[in-house]
């Protein structure tokens, strides 16, 4: 990618469904003509699903929480939390999508963890 023509946009958080991590699926107009709108939406929606899974009050989280609580939270020193595994899944998914879809179109999506889960930094050349 030519360094001079690289610009950044930041996909913001979407709080409409709660305080959990979700990113806005609105298609940024800067990417018009570079990538298909549905492809982009699917990617962001899948990233959101990783975080939904992380924040869900499911068996994984509750069991882990109970065990951690009973051991005085010593468990956290031994194992990665469910949340951390989900965050890693999201990062892996984004990398894979970059390789398969976005890089050839001059777009790179960043790991949301790099921005403290505030936004997804998106580089694009124009």
């Amino acid at each position: 990618m030519d360094r001079r023509n690289v610009r950044k946009i930041f996909v913001q958080r979407d709080y409409s469904r709660g305080t959990g991590v979700r990113f806005s699926t609105d298609f940024p107009r800067e990417l018009t003509g570079k990538v298909d709108e549905t492809t982009y939406r699917t990617t962001i929606e899948n990233v959101n699903q990783c975080f939904d899974e992380a924040e869900a009050l499911g068996c994984c989280n509750v069991l882990e929480g109970c065990l951690a609580c009973m051991t005085g939270f010593a468990l956290h020193y031994c194992f990665k939390t469910h949340y951390e595994r989900c965050v890693q899944d999201a990062a892996k998914y984004i990398q894979q999508q970059n390789r398969e879809v976005y890089e050839q179109r001059g777009i790179i999506l960043g790991d949301p963890m790099d921005r403290g889960l505030r936004c997804v930094s998106t580089l694009y050349s124009h």
Partner: peptide, 17 residues
């Protein structure tokens, strides 16, 4: 469920790296 969520709910990682 409120108690379950607060005490045993998801535990997010530190964001400040």
């Amino acid at each position: 469920l409120n108690f379950l969520f607060v005490i045993c709910g998801p535990f997010p990682p530190s964001l400040i790296d």
